[in-house]
Design a protein around this nucleic acid. Structure first.
Length: 273
DNA sequence: AAGCTGTCCTGAAAGC
DNA sequence: TGCTTTCAGGACAGCT
């Protein structure tokens, strides 16, 4: 599932090839994604030049000047650059053509979204973006910030880390991994965690995300890099998906539990409340 | 306000 | 072997 690193890798993968290029066509094959996808969207975009590819949380923002195309990859989505005319396969829902190139969205589980945001108002004011939390790779994301933001919150820290209204981009995998690296039990009430422990957690979150970006992004078996190669190589996780196996640090058996309908993995010895 | 649960979707894996 | 069930997951909607 694309988390922030995969989205960022996708952004970096497509931007150099597409920015400055003009949309020459495209097609919508599946209207039913997370939100209805307008069939005539490619026609609406035809003739417009892509100015920039940005990212806010897990949303990709393709700036066309006359508006912004917002793309979310959901949990199984991928964007790839292909030669124009490449035959579509199953689950290829949306194409945007830039001359000889083709930007193609594939999303088997259709949790993703493609939305056209006309420049009626500030882009950040769009309902999907307005209430988003802090960017974890931004300088402003500090231990002190997280400490202040979590006071009075009784929710387990793992679930808060995954709350995009607090901090964006951290999904199920990197939440478990970051907490392991910081030695914090995922069940700990966020508001009870001392500043000193956040001083360890925040850098570990950053290191976890940056390492994943550097590695080319890969957290899911069906994630495909935008250049078309398989971006899926088995990343070494400390705890994610390793229930019953030995902790790399202490040898204890990694445990799993469910928090808010999500699987959490942790080491009972290395991670404390 | 905070914190629950339900929902969307498909395919892989597990269970019988 | 082949069917059915479970699980995976982002983030909104709607409820308490």
């Amino acid at each position: 599932m694309p988390e922030l690193p995969e989205v960022e890798v996708t952004r970096r993968g497509i931007a150099p090839d597409l920015v400055g290029n003009r949309v020459s066509g495209g097609v919508t094959r599946t209207a039913r994604l997370r939100y209805p996808l307008a069939p005539q969207l490619p026609q609406l975009l035809t003739g417009l030049t892509l100015k920039d590819v940005g990212r806010r949380g897990k949303y990709l923002l393709l700036d066309f000047g006359a508006g912004t195309l917002l793309i979310h990859l959901g949990m199984s989505g991928s964007l790839r650059l292909l030669p124009r005319g490449t035959p579509p396969q199953k689950h290829d829902h949306f194409d945007l053509e830039f001359g000889k190139r083709l930007l193609r969205l594939r999303d088997p589980r259709r949790f993703g979204a493609v939305l056209w945001l006309a420049p009626n108002h500030e882009i950040g004011q769009h309902p999907l973006l307005a209430s988003l939390g802090i960017e974890p790779l931004a300088e402003e994301f500090t231990a002190r910030w997280l400490f202040a933001a979590t006071r009075g919150r009784n929710t387990p820290i793992k679930q808060l880390l995954m709350d995009s209204h607090l901090v964006v981009g951290i999904g199920n995998i990197y939440a478990s991994e970051s907490l392991f690296r910081a030695g914090i039990d995922p069940r700990t009430a966020a508001g009870k965690i001392a500043l000193k422990r956040f001083e360890r957690l925040v850098p570990e979150i950053r290191a976890t995300l940056e390492a994943a970006i550097a590695a080319g992004g890969s957290s899911l078996r069906d994630f495909i890099r935008s250049d078309g190669s398989s971006g899926y190589f088995q990343q070494q996780y400390f705890v994610y998906g390793r229930a019953g196996e030995a902790c790399h640090n202490c040898g204890s058996k990694v445990r799993s539990l469910r928090q808010g309908q999500r699987a959490t993995f942790y080491c009972p010895r290395c991670q404390r409340r």
